[in-house]
């Protein structure tokens, strides 16, 4: 049976000795950005609409997600923000009845166009899910390196890449001694940061996060927010969150989605996070960010 799953059984190659860790350096100077992703990519969504079967869930969404910035998508449940997020890396089409209109450009190139393969799109635009989803049969190190294997990327310095990704995700100090242990043994927050590390290994230009902290305790949430903060400037981040404080803490720009009853979701207002929270133009935005509904 081993031949069906070489990844989980193959021992790690003995990597070069890792530099000694100084306490407290985990998320300061060590998380250097990779040379391939200096600043991330710009995502531009134009007139995006989406359907599940005949049910229209999203209408005419225009949004620019600037390179290296954190854009938060906020709004009550069922307003289409997760659907929008999944459109940004072509996960939307995995639902059999799903369809869409409009376009999404990554640095000017249409991700739904003919020039890009869907696997390339997802390699450049990574995703972290609501529920941590490490590959349970793989070791921690194999999880981090899974993207390399899955995209057929040859990496001579595999163990260095693993360390770098884990450092960038703020997990290195906690797992460096047990890289070969199964990923299933980590706590929920660690698993989520492992998933972030896994996404970073393939050096994406954009990282999408779908309520990454909703299943986590406050301490883990804070760790992840720190991680997002450290990634800013290196990777473009788009994060869906229900937590208003979180949106304020981590994002530079914010888009407020809302769906009226029996209508598709639309963007009510978008702009700099401070504007959205302190001086929104629309009264519905003001009501929502101040917790008066949703």
């Amino acid at each position: 049976m081993n031949n069906t799953d070489p990844a989980s059984t193959r021992p790690l190659p003995p990597g070069p000795p890792l530099p000694p860790e100084q306490p407290g350096t985990a998320h300061t100077a060590t998380g250097q950005p990779g040379p391939a992703a200096p600043g991330g990519g710009t995502l531009t969504a134009t007139q995006v609409s989406a359907w599940f079967g005949s049910n229209k869930v999203l209408e005419g969404v225009d949004l620019d997600m600037d390179a290296g910035q954190v854009t938060a998508l906020i709004g009550p449940s069922g307003c289409g923000k997760s659907t929008f997020l999944r459109i940004l890396n072509r996960m939307h089409e995995l639902v059999p009845t799903a369809s869409l209109a409009g376009s999404v450009l990554l640095d000017g190139e249409d991700i739904y166009g003919r020039t890009l393969r869907v696997t390339q799109v997802r390699r450049h635009i990574g995703m972290v899910f609501q529920k941590p989803n490490p590959f349970p049969a793989m070791s921690i190190a194999d999880n981090v390196a899974a993207g390399l294997k899955l995209t057929g990327t040859k990496a001579a310095n595999r163990s260095e890449l693993i360390e770098e990704s884990l450092r960038r995700a703020g997990l290195w100090n906690e797992v460096k001694g047990r890289l070969r242990d199964a990923a299933g043994g980590l706590s929920g927050g660690q698993q989520q940061r492992l998933c972030i590390a896994r996404s970073l290994t393939v050096r994406p230009d954009v990282l999408l996060m779908d309520e990454p902290c909703s299943a986590l305790d406050p301490t883990s949430t804070r760790r992840i927010e720190e991680t997002i903060d450290e990634l800013r400037g290196q990777v473009t981040i788009v994060i869906v969150t229900h937590n208003m404080q979180q949106a304020q803490r981590v994002s530079q720009r914010c888009a407020f989605f809302l769906a009226a009853e029996n209508e598709p979701g639309r963007i009510v207002e978008s702009g700099p996070t401070t504007t959205i929270f302190e001086s929104p133009k629309d009264s519905r935005t003001s009501d929502y960010v101040h917790g008066r509904f949703g």
Partner: peptide, 30 residues
Amino acid sequence: HECEGALALGATRWGMIRTVVLPFGRGGII
């Protein structure tokens, strides 16, 4: 959600089957 995790990394369908589906089903396959 594990399958989606693999696909979101840029995996092909076969890559997803190899890393997620088959290891998960190992017991049942045997």
